[in-house]
């Protein structure tokens, strides 16, 4: 098996590099010598890097779980309307109860995300199994509709500007005290790892799960719960980031196959690596201005996705 240690070392090295990229130049040799620099580190640079890593890992793991639940490798929460539903929830709660604390927003977002996902799963369960590419297609259109609805409401209530911050993911606003919710994503990822085998079996289909004595419904609900929670956490704190959950699990599957127990660590590390890399690109390409990580991923991710679509025969799994 390929050594995951290498990937972890690479992630660590890239994180260290990320700490030293910013508008204010800090020399590696003497950063600890000025108290301002140390402050800057603990208030901005370290939180940002941690947020990127947590987000990347969480998005990738969510993608892997979603692909098991939908039994289709071309889906992820932000391409089938889950993230969009979460954003809709945030908008609604902001409109109805302005000034409600972040945790309330998050809970409402999780509920709407859950509803969005349930609608999506109900829709795809009625599609013929012979056309796997129809599943992502329906997802994309569904997310488009939810997004149009959100924009419509935001437009009518003059919240468009506000809405934009959840629609495109960005790490530039991350400071200490603004990202800690993301640790919960880390916890959820670990939880996913604990029950990984059950998700793997769900991925084999309902009949296989029943045959293996799994409570199919219950596992699906647990999966939906984890997905809704981590998706809305990410949307609330950094906004929507496309393609990570789609691309990373597919690459990990090529390396490790469909066994989540074996592939999840890879998924998490590769996800973190990908987002960190894109965040760095976004910060460096037009220095000192920043390009949102969502935009960078839109470009890189769609290339990889196109490659996946062409490199593989039509059966999506």
């Amino acid at each position: 098996m390929k050594n995951i240690g290498v990937a972890i070392v690479a992630l660590f090295a890239l994180s260290c590099f990320s700490l030293f990229v910013g508008v204010k130049e800090i020399a590696i040799s003497d950063w600890w010598q000025s108290p301002q620099n140390i402050d800057l580190f603990f208030i901005s640079r370290i939180p940002r890097t941690l947020a990127v890593i947590l987000t990347g890992a969480s998005l990738a793991v969510s993608g892997a779980v979603m692909q098991m639940l939908a039994r289709n490798s071309f889906v992820e929460p932000s391409s089938v309307g889950t993230a969009q539903s979460a954003a809709l929830g945030i908008l609604l709660v902001t409109l109805l109860y302005p000034g409600s604390p972040l945790i309330v927003k998050m809970i409402v977002a999780s509920v709407t995300a859950m509803i969005g996902m349930a609608v999506f799963l109900a829709m795809i369960s009625r599609l013929p199994v012979t056309s796997p590419l129809l599943v992502p297609l329906v997802g994309l259109i569904f997310s488009g509709i939810v997004e149009a609805l959100t924009i419509f409401i935001a437009f009518q209530t003059e919240m468009l500007q506000f809405q934009g911050t959840w629609m495109s993911g960005e790490f530039s606003g991350i400071l200490r005290g603004r990202y800690e919710l993301l640790w919960l994503c880390g916890v959820l990822a670990i939880l996913t790892y604990v029950v990984a085998d059950q998700f793997t079996i769900i991925g084999m289909g309902k009949d296989a799960s029943i045959n293996l004595g799994l409570n199919y419904k219950q596992v699906v609900i647990v999966g939906l719960f984890i997905l809704a929670l981590s998706t809305s956490l990410v949307v609330v704190t950094v906004g929507m980031i496309p393609f990570v959950g789609l691309v990373v699990p597919n690459i990990a599957r090529r390396l490790m196959g469909d066994n989540l127990r074996a592939s999840l660590p890879w998924v998490a590390v590769l996800g973190a690596l990908l987002v960190l890399m894109c965040d760095l690109i976004g910060r460096l390409v037009h220095f000192p201005y920043e390009i949102p990580v969502g935009t960078v991923l839109g470009v890189i991710g769609s290339f990889v996705f196109l490659y996946l679509l062409y490199a593989r025969p039509a059966h999506a799994r």
């Binding site: 390009i291 949102p292 769609s302 196109l306 679509l309």
Partner: peptide, 25 residues
């Protein structure tokens, strides 16, 4: 057909992202 539609949609995403990217730089 499904592959073609999907590829087309992703092309759309790619073009839009590239546009966004260029507009930023």
């Amino acid at each position: 057909l499904h592959r073609m539609v999907l590829v087309g949609i992703i092309f759309g995403v790619l073009f839009r992202s590239l546009t966004g990217f260029l507009q930023r730089i």
